[in-house]
Write a protein that binds this DNA or RNA. Structure first.
Length: 943
RNA sequence: GGGCCUAUAGCUCAGUUGGUUAGAGCGCGCGCUUGAUAAGCGCGAGGUCGAUAGUUCAAGUCUAUCUAGGCCCA
């Protein structure tokens, strides 16, 4: 037979027909779709359509406006978009206002690099203008990148922390918290370059080798105290330091609670140090290690008072700290809160004085008269001499070690305490209120998040707000030029905030104090009328922490608390916490009801992505090569609450899954092209059993998918829908349905029954996947609407993103069908296995060449097979099925799982029908159609 | 060094209060189909559940330690 003859009945079949392309061409299609959405003002349309509906507010945490987006930022934005789109399609009014963090160091650095200048060589007002432009440029770049990902939001009116209104609110919040007594000025050590006379940020410090004097010093124990060691002679605690110049500022000696300390004899006196480190000291002294008779834990020495090594009028306590190690020294740490980070931290706990008798040039001040005017590194020598004279120096040598240096002048830097602004996290029970809210009023996902932020809140010190930088919101405090009194009140804040709203916070630096202050302002202490401005700016975390005021409270369409914050896990210390503290200070309530965190994107090795290792995936190039939907599907397929891995191979795999979903849509669309739900729908009661079962199955899917979305578990959504497409649809329903769809009369009940269900499946799955595959779902939606639009299934919505998700349909739940088909699928699996055996043996090729004989002694199974007797050939996609109750002489195959089932597969009886390809003994029964079976004759004859 | 998290087939995920031979899909191998065709169907091979020790009649599931990796601190 020629090819033509084989296909001579092809045009009597109802083959699938759809212009929906098999190949997506996403990289090309998506930008066109975006253009259309933009022209149609899709986001505004959604706002309009949901007006008056219940709100769902996801408040965007602002990414930093520097550089292009990476996978972390892309993932976070995409996850937020999943939520917003799901909530929107669930009927909520879910506005999404994206934000950007615009002030701060990284932009300053980039600017200095561009300008080739340093902090002291630029004019601040000019510099800030440049920084503002720089930030705006990257806001633009990132905005376009986010839009390209398919993220919908109010892109033409985002919130920027450098917007004049936002900056004015930042100033106002500072004023409000100051007025409520949360803000104070205190001392804190920071890196300080004595040559440049400036504070240095951590990023401005370089580590290099430096030679320092290493000294072991005795701190004599004061007499008449509870002392755990017996038989001591002039006992003293021994400390080790490489910065003798900080000894004048010593305010304690820090031990570790669970470390062993002992008292040993040295030159007729008793010294106390960590047992583990005795060898360290005695080897330097070139002495034998003495016998140890007594050992106590550090905790037993807590509170012991010691004599100060420099100032004879001072006594200092023994305290306990976790930072004490046995890597070097004596296990007894000289603690000068004004000259070290850890010293400062532990000092806060013990309320130690933050002494820092060193001026900006690094010279001792008059607070230490004996060294006054001397540079600290020169002071080292004088102090060592002094210690020797006092007889408390045990040992000294020079050592070379890694030491911080200024990045600009490359000179060694020091830690120096300076005046800084703080939020007192314990004022008005801020900490307790926040902790209580975290525990009782906020849902955390994953659950461990709660413990993580709680332990941070419990331990965190006061929040240092001030930075000695150029690009940020000024700390809006004035000082009386005469008496130095602070000036900040409602009037000064109001006037300043108004000016900032008009001219941005640059106004602080451009105008004089007199111009910024209300007319006639006088110092309340001394009546002076001249003031100077604070020069420090605010920590950028204060900026973003203010967003619950500057955005949530200010924008009419939003509200506080937000329903959801969704950020990376690093934000426990960052935005989650600063927002909480500020909101607690402002309102006594947390700014969010739910907090979800995402992990980090890593390379496939499980390690960090890095450009140098070449395992870096750029989201932009993924969009350009594979399409944003592939990236979206990837982030929708992994458990983002943990760290996730991304690579080209992994993306390739998700692209395979995408193709399966896409082809399923193509099949569905192709088979409903001639179906109109308004006129062709079959009533539920008249549907075929299999079709009813599929509605049941779809309803189960809908329930699970909705639940997964509500729990923010998008990877479950993906698996549910993908598996439904693969197993329920492609492998079973669609395959089985082909005979009915292609062969049966186009508008007959059997075909319309199938189409009624296929249409619903197509529409519902398109909606369910739309929050994730936003572009593809929209593409499918348009093709659905081309075949038919119906209010009944919501396809009258112009775009899928305006449609509502399918609602619960309890009447589709059918437990009887569920039970029947669950068993029927098992029977089918057994039959397919035997078919495969016959195929290997060359007995059959296509399944339609086979006839299946079934036998079972199991009553339940037997009843089921009889009940579905007529449907069995179509379920197995074979030509004939017979139930044989006593065919003992045949060679039965036993079911592997269904042991009670026996199966025989043999060559089908009769001849292959040229139209439907089923084998039948009645082919040619009608003289008019010698090559057709009676079913096909009947169908063709009626047309 | 500290706080928190993660670890089930090559990959992405399931594995109820500890209870038969650890599941699914993808990918892979082999075959079928050529009326979803740069598609579709079937069968099959893949796992000492990160390691070790323990609790228990019974551990992927509970406990401890370790290893690898991550976030935040120091």
């Amino acid at each position: 037979m020629s090819q033509k003859e084989i296909n001579k009945y092809q045009n009597t079949l109802n083959l699938p027909d759809s212009p929906f392309p098999m190949r997506a061409g996403l990289a090309k299609q998506e930008p066109e779709r975006l253009k259309k959405w933009n022209e149609e003002k899709l986001y505004s349309q959604i706002r309009e359509a949901r007006k008056g509906a219940e709100k769902f507010i996801l408040h965007d945490g602002p990414p930093y406006a520097n550089g292009k987006i990476h996978n972390g930022t892309a993932m976070n934005k995409i996850l937020k978009d999943f939520v917003v789109k799901f909530k929107t399609m669930s009927g909520f009014d879910a506005p999404y206002i994206p934000g950007w963090d615009c002030h701060g160091m990284p932009i300053e650095h980039a600017m200095f690099k561009e300008l080739g200048k340093s902090k002291h060589e630029v004019d601040q007002v000019e510099f800030r203008k440049g920084a503002r432009k720089y930030a705006a440029k990257f806001v633009d770049i990132q905005r376009n990148q986010f839009k390209r990902l398919g993220v919908l939001g109010e892109w033409n009116n985002p919130y920027l922390t450098m917007n004049p209104n936002y900056e004015a609110d930042t100033v106002r919040v500072f004023g409000e918290l100051y007025g409520k007594g949360y803000i104070y000025k205190g001392m804190k050590p920071i890196h300080w370059c004595t040559s440049c006379e400036t504070a240095l940020a951590e990023a401005e410090v370089e580590y290099d080798n430096h030679t320092s004097p290493s000294v072991f010093v005795k701190f004599p124990v004061l007499k008449e105290q509870n002392f755990p060691f017996e038989n001591c002679k002039n006992p003293s605690v021994v400390i080790w330091t490489t910065t003798p110049w900080t000894l004048p500022a010593n305010r304690a000696v820090c031990l570790k609670a669970d470390l062993d300390y002992c008292a040993v004899e040295l030159d007729g006196e008793t010294i106390i140090l960590a047992t583990e480190l005795i060898g360290n000291l005695f080897s330097k002294l070139e002495k034998n290690i003495p016998e140890i008779t007594e050992t106590v834990k550090g905790i037993e020495l807590e509170g012991l008072m010691l004599k100060h090594p420099i100032d004879d009028n001072l006594t200092v306590p023994v305290i306990l700290g976790e930072h004490v190690t046995t890597e070097a020294g004596t296990g007894c740490v000289h603690t000068a809160p004004g000259h070290g980070q850890e010293d400062y931290q532990v000092g806060l706990k013990y309320k130690l004085e933050v002494a820092s008798p060193v001026n900006e040039k690094g010279h001792f001040t008059d607070d230490v008269p004996e060294y006054s005017g001397n540079f600290v590194f020169k002071g080292n020598k004088l102090i060592i001499e002094n210690l020797r004279e006092k007889g408390i120096l045990i040992f000294t040598e020079n050592i070379s070690h890694s030491y911080p240096h200024c990045w600009r002048c490359h000179k060694p830097v020091i830690f120096r305490a300076t005046e800084q602004w703080f939020i007192n996290v314990d004022a008005h029970d801020m900490r307790e209120t926040a902790i209580n809210a975290v525990d009782k009023k906020v849902n955390w996902l994953p659950a461990a998040s709660k413990q993580r932020i709680l332990s941070m809140l419990q331990l965190r010190p006061d929040w240092c707000l001030s930075r000695q930088r150029l690009w940020g919101v000024p700390i809006p405090v004035f000082y009386c030029k005469k008496c130095g009194a602070e000036l900040l009140n409602k009037n000064t804040i109001n006037k300043l905030a108004e000016l900032v709203e008009k001219e941005t916070s640059d106004v602080w630096f451009a105008k004089s104090a007199e111009e910024l202050l209300p007319e006639g302002t006088t110092c309340s202490k001394c009546n002076c009328t001249e003031f100077r401005k604070e020069t420090d700016i605010l920590d950028v975390w204060f900026d973003s922490g203010v967003s619950n005021r500057a955005v949530l409270e200010r924008r009419e369409q939003l509200h506080v608390p937000a329903d959801l914050y969704l950020e990376g896990s690093d934000q426990h210390r960052g935005w989650f916490q600063v927002s909480l503290l500020i909101a607690t200070g402002l309102r006594g309530e947390p700014p969010y009801k739910n907090v979800v965190t995402n992990g980090w994107t890593l390379a496939a090795s499980g390690e960090k992505e890095s450009k140098s290792k070449g395992n870096f995936i750029d989201p932009e190039s993924v969009c350009n090569k594979m399409g944003a939907d592939i990236l979206r599907l990837w982030f929708g397929s992994v458990n983002y609450m943990q760290d996730v891995q991304i690579s080209q191979e992994l993306l390739k795999q998700v692209a395979d899954s995408y193709r399966r979903i896409r082809n399923t849509f193509k099949f569905l669309l192709g088979n409903i092209h001639d179906y109109n739900p308004e006129t062709d729908a079959v009533d539920y009661d008249d549907l075929l059993a299999l079709d009813k079962y599929m509605l049941h199955s779809l309803e189960i899917l809908r329930g699970k998918v909705t639940e997964a979305y509500n729990e923010f578990k998008f990877y479950r959504v993906f698996h549910l829908i993908h598996d439904f497409c693969t197993v329920e649809l492609s492998a079973r329903y669609c395959d089985i349905l082909k005979d009915r769809l292609y062969v049966e009369a186009a508008s007959g009940l059997k075909r319309r029954s199938a189409q009624t269900v296929l249409r619903k499946i197509c529409v519902d799955i398109t909606k369910l996947i739309a929050p994730i595959l936003s572009f593809t779902a929209e593409e499918v939606w348009q093709y659905i609407c081309e075949t038919a639009v119906s209010e009944k299934d919501g396809t009258n919505a112009e775009t899928v993103h305006l449609a509502l998700l399918p609602t619960e349909q309890k009447n589709h739940i059918n437990e009887e069908l569920e039970a029947d088909y669950s068993l029927l699928w098992s029977v089918r699996d057994e039959v397919l296995k035997v078919l495969e055996v016959k195929r290997r043996d060359g007995i059959i090729g296509s399944g339609l060449e086979a006839a299946v004989v079934l036998n079972t002694q199991d009553e339940k199974l037997s009843a089921l097979l009889k009940k579905y007797k007529d449907a069995l050939p179509s379920l197995f996609i074979v030509s004939q099925t017979t139930l044989d109750e006593n065919a003992d002489n045949e060679k039965w195959s036993q079911g592997q799982e269904l042991k009670s089932l026996k199966i025989i597969v043999k060559k089908a009886e009769g001849v292959k029908c040229a139209r439907c390809w089923n084998y039948s003994e009645n082919v040619g029964a009608d003289d008019k159609y010698s090559d057709l079976c009676s079913r096909c004759t009947g169908i063709i004859g009626n047309e």
